[in-house]
């Protein structure tokens, strides 16, 4: 499926005095879930609006399947997007919201019922959308994105307001989409939401890409060459390990983090010193840690309210 890509190339955008994007560049590929992460105000929503042709970039371009979005005849058949789940008329029923979207793409009503079933919203579909919970709105928004069965799906903060059950459902759902060779671009300001789901992450801050790599690589680089050592005798262990020249820090009760020592060497040093330990393994950083490493300098609003 060759048109299942989003290519963003050198986007620049200013709103009056505020610069939103400074050379945003990345690609979302088929068969992968691409996480699009960054703090609030990093330019994620602006990028998505430009991809959808809603805002005009001052420079650079965004292509969907190799073509500008605004040149597509049935755009929802190429890219399904969820920007803002609350973008509903409160008096219109969820089903009618999908019906008009389907009509705009020349799709039949049967497709509406299919996607409603897909997101599990059949029972509430004929009620006015004003009464929906945030989670229901997210599901409706996802149903709208899937309406024309597009090769590319783009979701802006889809986990916002979802209950734990919903989050699990959406992760599996997006994984399954990628499994069917769709390109999935999911933005989030919380790394944890993407862990175990995204294949690729594009980390952005202040309008540009800070890191664009496979999740595995990112975690490996953030893990460094550290070891986790769990022992009841922390001071003894620390003394033994420090003597080899390694840096040791106590991260928790019974837990040491050791830098600059291979696993085999650490085992033999501890064994030689007669220090008991219950666990010794290379440290696996969480996506969250990796993210904080990367964005430490790129946060515009450190304690900004979530939007």
């Amino acid at each position: 499926m060759t048109d299942a890509t989003i290519e963003v190339d050198g986007l620049h955008k200013r709103y009056g005095a505020a610069t939103a994007l400074r050379g945003m560049t990345f690609t979302a590929r088929p068969g992968r879930v691409t996480g699009f992460v960054g703090p609030n105000g990093a330019g994620k929503s602006t990028t998505m609006r430009i991809i959808l042709g809603l805002h005009r970039a001052d420079a650079g371009r965004a292509l969907v399947g190799g073509r500008p979005y605004r040149s597509l005849r049935h755009p929802l058949r190429h890219l399904g997007a969820l920007l803002d789940a609350s973008a509903l008329h409160p008096a219109r029923s969820g089903r009618n919201h999908l019906v008009w979207l389907a009509q705009s793409q020349g799709l039949g009503r049967s497709r509406v019922d299919e996607v409603l079933a897909q997101v599990g919203l059949e029972s509430a579909a004929r009620r006015a959308a004003g009464g929906y919970s945030l989670g229901m709105r997210q599901r409706l928004g996802i149903a709208a994105a899937l309406l024309a069965d597009p090769p590319v799906v783009m979701l802006d903060e889809p986990f916002n307001g979802m209950d734990p059950e919903g989050i699990v459902w959406l992760r599996d759902f997006l994984r399954a989409l990628a499994g069917r060779q769709r390109a999935v671009l999911v933005s989030s300001h919380l790394m944890t939401e993407l862990q175990g789901m995204a294949d690729q992450v594009v980390v952005v801050g202040r309008g540009r890409v800070i890191a664009d790599c496979a999740v595995a690589d990112l975690i490996a680089s953030a893990s460094g060459d550290r070891l986790r050592v769990r022992t009841s005798a922390t001071s003894l262990a620390a003394a033994a390990l420090t003597s080899t020249g390694a840096q040791v820090t106590e991260t928790d009760q019974d837990l040491l983090s050791v830098r600059g020592l291979p696993v085999e060497r650490a085992v033999s040093v501890l064994a030689a010193a007669g220090v008991p330990f219950s666990e010794l393994a290379p440290h696996r950083a969480t996506l969250e840690e990796a993210y904080f490493d990367l964005t430490r300098d790129a946060v515009d609003y450190r304690s900004g309210a979530s939007s």
């Binding site: 959808l52 809603l54 755009p75 929802l76 920007l83 609350s86 973008a87 008329h89 709208a144």
Partner: peptide
């Protein structure tokens, strides 16, 4: 309701 974005997309 920002519905215009959905409409225009």
């Amino acid at each position: 309701y920002a519905l215009i974005r959905t409409t225009l997309s």
